[in-house]
């Protein structure tokens, strides 16, 4: 499954980039993520609960931040394994400043889902993947807006 999208974020590019690198922000925004522990250079382990409505599964995941070119570009790689199967997702994120207080985030993603979920849920996989990935960025946006309100 592949796709792309873009979203306008409140904040200057350096601030936005910094937030995206923050494991606490990632924990809040990655679906069903309770906590992330650092296990290597820019590599985290997390327990994710991924799914839609009642169809949810627990995944033991590794999240790595790669190809970092601050503050414009990085790649987020997620690999999760669980009872329902596995998830391999890669997102390439590019940031462009719109002005001093707004940043455009464009992303392209490639996701592969395997195991039981793929064998049984292929009807909805493409759509749900698009949805969940879009949700991640919406949460990032909300997180940034909240941060600004506090500030």
């Amino acid at each position: 499954m592949t796709g792309n999208g873009s979203i306008e974020l409140n904040g200057p590019i350096e601030h936005v980039f910094h937030k995206l690198m923050d494991p606490e922000v990632l924990t809040e925004c990655i679906m069903g993520c309770k906590s992330m522990e650092l296990v290597g250079e820019r590599k985290y382990r997390a327990d994710l609960s991924v799914g839609i409505a009642a169809v949810k599964g627990k995944y033991d995941a590794y999240i790595t931040v790669e190809e970092v070119q601050a503050p414009h570009h990085f790649k987020l790689v997620v690999h999760g394994e669980g009872g329902p199967g596995y998830v391999d997702a890669e997102g390439i994120i590019d940031l462009t400043p719109l002005d001093e207080s707004k940043t455009q985030l464009t992303y392209t993603y490639q996701a592969e889902v395997g195991g039981k979920v793929a064998a049984i849920g292929q009807r909805m996989l493409g759509g749900v993947a698009k949805l969940l990935i879009g949700d991640f960025f919406k949460k990032i946006k909300k997180n940034l807006e909240r941060g600004q309100q506090i500030a």
Binding site: K116, Q122, R123
Partner: peptide, 12 residues
């Protein structure tokens, strides 16, 4: 084409 099995139930 990556080898993922897609017709795992009688739905598909």
């Amino acid at each position: 084409r990556n080898g993922q099995f897609l017709s795992g139930s009688f739905m598909d």
